[in-house]
Amino acid sequence: MSEQEQKQEQPIENVTENAAPNTEDLAETEAQTEQNAADPLEEAIARVQELEEQLADAAKKEQDALLRARAEVDNMRRRAEQDVEKAHKFALEKFAKDILNTIDNLERALATPANKEDESVKGLFDGVELTLKELLATVARFGIEPVGLVGDTFNPELHQAISMQPAEGFETNQITAVLQKGYLLNNRVIRPAMVMVAA
């Protein structure tokens, strides 16, 4: 072979040698292209799953916020109802405290040592007694009740002890004398009873 023919063959061999690696590169590139094509699909699936999780979290948070808002509205409504109920129940408290002084004065008038046999005084006593009974019946209709009777056990929530003395016929912590009656308005103390207690 001539030199020229050898040169011509040599490039063909080089081309063949060069072609073999290019075929491998091409196969590798195709594999990467397929992998890259699979990667966007996997990325899209992963992104969809991530978005679904975020959507579920947002829905859960929204549900929680809705439940909290409903509970807060229920609590506010309940508090408002209780406030209105208390306002209705205890609206008479100030008036009741003022009327108690009148009741006390009528009871003091009946307790005065006077000759009740005298006809001029007897009529007055009867009138005061009837007035007191009517007034007590009226305040009882509105939930005002007296507390503090002789012989009751002392209760610091209802009674105010003025003194403690040994007393015959009474046990310890029993009320021996009532100096001023106490009153409740719908089971709430509007005035504690002033009492003496057995020691």
Score class of each variant (00 low, 15 high):
I99L: 15
I12W: 10
E50H: 04
A56F: 05
V84L: 12
M1F: 11
P40W: 12
T16R: 13
Q4I: 08
Q35S: 14
E28L: 15
T172A: 14
T33E: 12
V178S: 02
G148Y: 00
T176G: 01
E3V: 07
K116T: 07
Q6G: 05
A114N: 14
P166A: 12
E17R: 13
H88K: 10
L51V: 08
L55E: 15
A80F: 06
R188N: 07
V128Y: 01
A199I: 04
A167V: 05
E50I: 06
V15H: 09
F142D: 10
K7E: 03
E171W: 07
P146D: 09
V147Y: 01
N187K: 15
M76A: 14
V197T: 01
L132I: 02
A31V: 09
G151D: 06
Q10K: 15
N115Q: 05
Q54E: 15
E93D: 14
N115T: 03
G127C: 06
E107G: 01
L66P: 01
E134F: 04
E42D: 13
E24T: 10
A56M: 05
V15Y: 15
F90S: 02
E107Q: 10
D57Y: 07
A27E: 14
E30N: 15
N101M: 06
R79E: 13
F125I: 14
L184C: 04
G148F: 01
Q4C: 00
T102P: 00
E42I: 09
L185C: 03
P113L: 05
V48D: 06
